[in-house]
């Protein structure tokens, strides 16, 4: 029984860390967005609005939980769960430092992409079960987008995996220790972003599209589709959808740090987990920056770009990496 006890304890700890980081990320997104649009953002609740997120979560929990009359009741309730559980399951494999990982096994990246494919099911189910035309269109768009971009996402990371020779997240980070030397001086850290620049670009674009962040937030498109597949969702169900989506964004950033930015490796007396979080939040900052800067692309542009440019480029990247590795 101790096995289950340890598993439950680990799950609770990871859930706690994930939730705290979610609140931090939400606060950061609001503040950074506000800063870029020359306003203050939340200022009233707590010191500089620090407790605003807590207040918002409480508000969402206390709201009336509405299930539309025409909705398919079972599926309507099930959809947020299908969205949240896989997103949370991904956190279990993220290594914060060499030893700080809830569950590491040698197929880490493969597992992550496997679990990521469940998420579009929730989008489709939510769109269908709501029995509303906006939700249906949003659901179809969302699923089509996520399926299309999962393929370049997986293909872009394969370059890194080929160079490491392992799917293991810890091993991928360990392969990035050390420096590149020029005339005997360390000039650049030995990160995969310098060895796989094309892979990183493809990964980042595909990841943005896969997590439906701006400029690829077509399935939600507040101004045309009134939130898309989660139009009919309110209260805690909406909160769960929302959390799942933000979890995905955080996972994608953490993965980019692990695969391309040397994970927890750093210098000086600062402990490894701090480095990891620092890098992850820098990537998140960049994502928020994009949200504040770019307009939304059209759905046909998105599909064209994914299938006709990103995927061939990713395959080419794999091929070139293979050639360079054989030598």
């Amino acid at each position: 029984m101790t096995v289950i006890g340890v598993a439950v304890l680990k799950t609770l700890i990871v859930l706690g860390v994930a939730m705290v980081n979610l609140l931090l990320f939400l606060y950061m997104e609001r503040k950074v967005l506000a800063d870029m649009q020359v306003r203050y953002g939340p200022m009233r609740v707590g010191f500089h609005g620090t407790l605003q997120q807590v207040a918002d979560v409480l508000k969402l929990l206390l709201k009336e939980d509405i299930v539309p009359k025409a909705a398919d009741r079972w599926l309507f309730v099930l959809a947020p769960m299908i969205a949240f559980v896989p997103s949370f399951m991904l956190f279990m494999t993220i290594p914060i430092s060499e030893s700080l990982v809830a569950s590491n096994f040698n197929l880490g990246f493969f597992y992550i992409f496997g679990i990521l494919t469940i998420v579009p099911v929730s989008v489709l189910v939510a769109g269908w079960a709501s029995h509303s035309k906006y939700s249906l269109i949003g659901g179809l768009r969302g699923a089509a987008q996520q399926i299309s971009y999962e393929i370049p996402l997986l293909a872009s990371i394969l370059g890194v995996i080929m160079m490491t020779g392992s799917f293991d997240l810890v091993k991928i980070v360990e392969a990035q220790q050390g420096f590149f030397y020029l005339f005997g001086y360390p000039v650049l850290p030995r990160w995969y972003i310098f060895l796989q620049p094309v892979g990183f670009l493809i990964y980042f674009v595909a990841a943005l599209a896969d997590t439906q962040r701006t400029p690829f937030d077509i399935p939600e498109a507040e101004s045309e589709l009134v939130q898309g597949y989660n139009t009919e969702y309110s209260s805690i169900k909406f909160a769960i959808f929302f959390m799942g989506e933000y979890f995905d964004t955080m996972i994608i950033s953490a993965l980019s740090v692990i695969a391309f930015f040397g994970g927890w490796s750093g210098f000086g007396p600062i402990p490894a987990p701090i480095w990891f979080f620092l890098k992850t939040y820098l990537v998140l900052y960049f994502i928020i920056w994009l949200r504040a800067t770019l307009p939304r692309v059209r759905i046909d542009q998105l599909m064209d770009f994914g299938w006709k440019i990103l995927l061939p480029l990713a395959l080419l990247n794999i091929m070139v990496t293979g050639f360079l590795m054989i030598r």
Binding site: L107, F110, F113, I115, W128, A143
Partner: peptide
Amino acid sequence: EFLGIVQILIYAGAVTILVLFVVM
């Protein structure tokens, strides 16, 4: 684990979505 992940990736993910699209 490998078979389990392939099962999720291909059947639970891709095939289910294809069938859902057809149904919808």
